[in-house]
Amino acid sequence: MPPNANDNILAETERVFEKVPSEEPCYDEENEVENECSCDETSYGDAVFSTFVVAPLVVSVWRGTWGIMELHSHLFPYAQIYLLGIIIHACFALGRAYLLERSEGAWSGTNGGAGRWLWERILSKFYTYVFTLSCIMHWRGGWGLLDTVVAKIVPNDRDPHRPILYAAFTLTFYISITFLRSARNLLASPFFLFTDGKEPTYIFTTRFKKTVSNYFLVEPPP
Rank of each mutant, 00 (worst) to 15 (best):
N214V: 05
L100T: 04
G109L: 11
T110W: 00
Y27K: 07
L217R: 09
P190D: 05
V218H: 03
T195F: 01
L146P: 00
F17N: 05
P3F: 14
I81Q: 02
L193R: 11
S176V: 12
G67P: 03
S176Q: 08
L186W: 14
A183L: 13
V61Y: 12
I87E: 14
F92M: 05
T42V: 10
F52W: 10
T211Y: 06
V59C: 05
N156K: 07
Y78D: 15
S124E: 00
C37A: 15
I86T: 03
A5W: 04
V33I: 15
D40W: 08
G141N: 13
P25Q: 00
E70H: 02
E41K: 09
L57A: 10
F194A: 02
S50L: 02
R96A: 02
V149M: 15
C37E: 15
T172S: 08
M137W: 15
D159S: 06
A93R: 03
E34L: 15
L10H: 07
A79E: 14
V58R: 00
Y98L: 08
N6K: 14
T42A: 11
V154T: 10
A97L: 01
R121M: 06
F179Y: 13
L100S: 05
K125H: 06
R140F: 08
S189Y: 07
I86M: 03
L171E: 09
P2H: 09
R184Y: 15
S103P: 03
E24T: 08
K210Y: 12
F173E: 06
P163V: 02
G197K: 08
Y166S: 01
Y202P: 00
N4E: 05
P2D: 09
E32R: 10
V130T: 14
I88Q: 11
A90M: 09
A93F: 01
Y202E: 01
H138S: 04
L165E: 03
P155Q: 10
G64D: 00
V20T: 06
F17T: 09
E70T: 04
T205K: 13
T206Q: 09
K210D: 12
P77G: 11
F126I: 12
N35I: 10
M1I: 15
G112D: 07
P222Y: 04
C39R: 04
S73D: 11
T42Q: 10
W117M: 12
R116M: 07
V48N: 14
V212I: 11
C39V: 09
S124R: 15
Y202R: 05
E23T: 05
E70G: 02
L94Y: 05
D157W: 07
